Simulated assay, not measured.
Amino acid sequence: MKTSTPALSIRLAGERGHADHGWLDSRHTFSFADYHDPAQMGFRTLRVINDDRVAAGRGFGLHPHRDMEIFSYMLEGQLQHEDSLGNGRTLSPGQVQLMSAGSGVRHSEFNPSSDEPTHFLQVWIHPRERGLSPSYTEWHPSPEHTESPKVLIISPDGHEGSATIHQDVDIYRLRLGEGQSASHQLPAGHGLWLQVAAGSIRVNGTPLAVGDGVSSEDAGLFTMTADAPAEALLFDFA
């Protein structure tokens, strides 16, 4: 019996929204702030993927959030986080911070370097319920994760040492060398989003460049192969 290949919907990097504030250069996969496209309001409970570059010594001042799961995935430089829950952290490449804003929290994000820019992905996901108690969690790669092609970084129950999110989604970091592959089996009823953070990847043979995203609502096997050293986030929404 022949198995059909899952259908893919591609969101090209060059079609994203763009805001250049001088100190902040941001690319918006979905509608955000002054960028609005009714056809790009998110995917399932995924609401925001912002590809942010922050100049040295600059950042986002203290500001509020509520009823949103917000995580940052570091790509280059450092990011200093402080919030009204009393957390204060400085993140480095490959690390994740996840804040559940819940009933309300205030936080700031700042590039502490005097000369190096910071590059990170900030992702917003709707929680499964409103009014939760605010919380904060992190994921740091262990030595065995450094070169692992696929590792779980965020999940609803924190298994495998992942950060904990209040939504039915498993999120994986892919880190592939040239020619290296990783696979993911998407169950029936689930939805997949993959965001290329660095390099270039083919998903079931379809080429994607840095900044591209791809989604699918079809169950099946997804094979990701790097044409050049690559990094990506893979979301499996139940």
Rank of each mutant, 00 (worst) to 15 (best):
T3G: 00
S4K: 08
S4Q: 09
A7C: 00
L8K: 02
S9C: 06
I10D: 02
L12N: 01
R16E: 07
G17C: 07
A19F: 09
D20T: 01
G22I: 03
W23D: 04
D25Y: 02
D25I: 07
S26M: 03
R27I: 00
H28S: 04
T29M: 07
F30T: 03
D37M: 02
P38V: 08
R44E: 13
T45Y: 01
L46Y: 01
V48Y: 09
D51W: 08
A55K: 09
A56Q: 11
G57I: 00
F60K: 07
G61L: 11
G61T: 10
H65I: 10
R66K: 15
D67K: 06
F71V: 09
L75T: 02
L79S: 06
Q80N: 11
H81E: 11
H81V: 01
E82C: 10
S84D: 05
G86K: 01
G86D: 06
R89A: 12
R89W: 07
L91C: 06
G94P: 06
Q95D: 13
V96D: 10
V96H: 09
V96R: 05
V96W: 06
Q97C: 05
M99E: 03
S100N: 14
S100A: 13
A101H: 11
A101D: 09
S103W: 03
H107W: 12
N111Y: 10
P112W: 04
P112Y: 09
P112H: 02
S113R: 10
S114K: 12
S114T: 15
E116W: 02
H119C: 04
Q122Y: 04
Q122D: 02
Q122N: 08
V123N: 05
W124I: 05
W124C: 03
W124R: 08
I125H: 03
H126V: 00
P127W: 02
E129S: 15
E129I: 00
R130N: 08
R130M: 07
G131E: 06
P134D: 11
P134E: 08
S135V: 10
Y136D: 02
T137G: 14
H140D: 05
P143E: 14
P143K: 06
P143D: 14
T146F: 06
E147M: 09
E147T: 15
P149C: 13
K150C: 03
L152G: 04
P156H: 11
D157S: 14
D157E: 14
E160V: 01
I165D: 14
I165A: 15
H166M: 12
Q167G: 09
D168A: 15
V169H: 02
V169P: 00
V169R: 03
D170W: 05
I171N: 04
Y172D: 03
R173K: 12
L174F: 11
E178Y: 01
E178F: 00
H184S: 09
H184Y: 13
Q185P: 00
P187M: 03
G191N: 04
G191P: 00
L194N: 05
Q195P: 07
V196P: 05
V196H: 07
S200H: 08
R202Y: 00
G205P: 09
T206S: 11
L208S: 08
D212Y: 06
G213C: 08
V214G: 04
S215H: 05
G220M: 10
L221P: 00
T223L: 02
D227R: 11
A232H: 12
F235S: 01
D236L: 05
D236E: 13
